[in-house]
Design a protein around this nucleic acid. Structure first.
Lengths: 360, 360
DNA sequence: GTGAAAGCGCTAACAC
DNA sequence: GTGTTAGCGCTTTCAC
């Protein structure tokens, strides 16, 4: 097991007497007033209640440590003050920073987050949307789903039916008719590859994300554009399909070593770049001497690696904040037009890339 | 701004007609049955309903894409199938992995997580507990709070009144009368320091967490024990108060360089160790030649740093799972005895520590 | 100034 | 086999 347990002495707790939380009714009984009046006062509704009564209610509520039951409030107001956050992997630094940004913003508006981790599983995603809907969330923030064209319509139907604002982060499908917040992925990939080209590399492999993710598609476009502009060929066998996870990067790097003569790798995110670095290390391929590598995301640790990683910066926290703001805006104004908010990337050059060695 | 926005063309959506989600009542009306019957069938309650009726209900529910309103269910069942997770910083790898483990386990039991990020702020923590209570969570998992003795009683009262199981992670106060899951921090610190001592170090500084955190206290005990056992002195000025954050580690390292002749540092977590590493680098102090450093947590990246970090392993995901299981258990059996579940640490020796250089 | 009553969507005890 | 009824805790309209 790897752990042991220690049983506490059996005990009864005096406070188990106060099993129930105070309700409006309790306060009404205590003060000899009606539930209505108590509700009115505690919600600071404009109404003609005598100061004495008001004081009494406030005092009693305080004493009884009254907190309104949000399930009941949500039921009647049809607004739960929660928002749903669907994320593929909360342990990924990009997403956890995104979540932090969202939380910070929502906190200012007294909304709480219901967190759903999909593990990159499309089925969990679909179920998750229904779960959130049934929980009456006021909005959904949806990150990085990878949808096949077939799934897309199902998905689109689903989102159409949630009746609450949906903001997609990091994957924009026009079919979805909802607001989106994302990085200019095309440009991000373009500047990453351009950097490698400027360093004299011509055989540049890439490790992509899942095939149907729009993020992947957009980054692929940027890669293609940069290669094409430089008059470089784009052999299919230089493109490797990863999964935005470490082991995917590691596996792709194996392939790259085995089947190409690439001198540079562009990994579509830092985590895969990391996986690739480990493979290269195992094969005693030096970075950047034998292989240059550039990542994407600029997660916290990419600058502190054995070989600090050159990467494209993506401001996760700010993206989260912005997504939260847009969700809040659409909750407030349901008929406001949808927007696409795009952040601009920039390249952070560190030590994992260097000019191509001339043949020796 | 750093980003631009693009406005979508204004559009009306045909599906806005189906503004409402289907309710039991809708299905009852549609099938000419009573709400009760529909509820009974959809909840798979043992009851004598004709197969024809059952089929009809199931089919209709399917067609109308019925999902029960969980606010209503929660209100009447006094059980919301949500659990509250209070975490100081979700962007910290230890906590995000913890959250992942909790989510995985809760997912298997159809419970969702309401995530509250406290930013290490005691006030947010207190507010958070009340918020969760008012949201009717079935249990609360509470991580790493740092309570002054004064706060402790307030806090204890608060928790007593939530009426739902509380499982504390990574901070055990007997006064709280709730189950706890944690690492054997005392032992973890002990083996870390022992390792440094075995390497011949005698001037060992430590960077602690906040003063009142039990994690800090326990690790401090382990540190003291190892030092004492080895007959080493324990000058106060070798103990530096950090905050479990990177900048805290960096600041403490400055102090260590300025005011001690330490040859080794034991940082109470990896993130602070990282901060310290950066300071040392800025001061051109070589790790491990001039300074050995050992961390705590074994977060993902600690092995991939420029100088791979020697650290104490803490299985965040498993700790999360176990906390979730205990919470689930107590939801199921409210009167079950509370437990303390302790995981055993082990040291992972990498390159940031080495035997002390003999004076040259 | 304050209260009665209806209803949000659901469950469950009890009729018939 | 199926329906009636009450009620979870709250908001809100309307009456007094």
């Amino acid at each position: 097991m790897g752990y042991f347990t220690f049983r506490h002495p059996i005990k009864t707790y005096p406070w188990e007497v106060f099993a129930m939380s105070a309700t409006l009714k309790d306060i009404a009984r205590e003060t000899n007033l009606s539930v209505t009046t108590v509700s009115l006062v505690l919600n600071k509704k404009p109404c003609r209640v005598s100061d004495a009564t008001r004081e009494l209610i406030l005092k009693t509520a305080e004493e009884m440590n009254y907190y309104p039951n949000q399930l009941a409030v949500g039921l009647v107001k049809q607004q739960s003050n929660t928002i749903g956050l669907i994320i593929p992997d909360i342990s990924n630094h990009f997403y956890s920073n995104l979540a932090l940004g969202i939380d910070a913003e929502m906190n200012n508006h007294n909304k709480n987050i219901i967190l759903l981790n999909t593990d990159f599983d499309a089925e969990k995603l679909v179920r998750g949307i229904n779960v959130l809907k049934s929980r009456g969330v006021d909005a959904i923030i949806l990150t990085a789903a990878s949808l096949s064209p077939k799934n897309l319509s199902l998905y689109s139907d689903l989102l159409s039916n949630v009746r609450v604002p949906v903001v997609t982060v990091d994957h924009y499908y026009p079919e979805l008719h909802c607001s989106a917040v994302q990085l200019n992925n095309r440009k991000g990939a373009y500047i990453a590859v351009k950097h490698l080209i400027n360093y004299g590399h011509t055989d540049i492999a890439c490790i992509t994300g899942p095939r149907h993710s729009t993020v992947t598609l957009e980054r692929l476009e940027g890669y293609r554009l940069a290669m094409k502009e430089a008059g470089l060929s784009l052999p299919e066998k230089y493109m490797f399909c990863g999964n935005y996870r470490q082991e995917g990067g590691a596996r792709a790097a194996e392939e790259i070593l085995r089947s190409t003569k690439a001198t540079a790798i562009f990994a579509f995110n830092d985590v895969m770049a990391l996986g690739a670095c480990q493979t290269l290390k195992e094969h005693a391929v030096s970075i950047p001497d034998d292989m240059s590598i550039v990542g994407f995301d600029n997660i916290d640790f990419s600058g502190m690696l054995a070989v600090p990683l050159t990467t494209v910066n993506q401001p996760a926290y700010e993206i989260g904040q912005e997504a939260a703001r847009q969700a809040l805006l659409e909750i407030e104004h349901p008929d406001i037009e949808k927007r696409t908010i795009t952040f601009e990337p920039h390249l952070i050059v560190r030590s994992s890339t260097k000019p191509r060695a001339s043949k020796s």
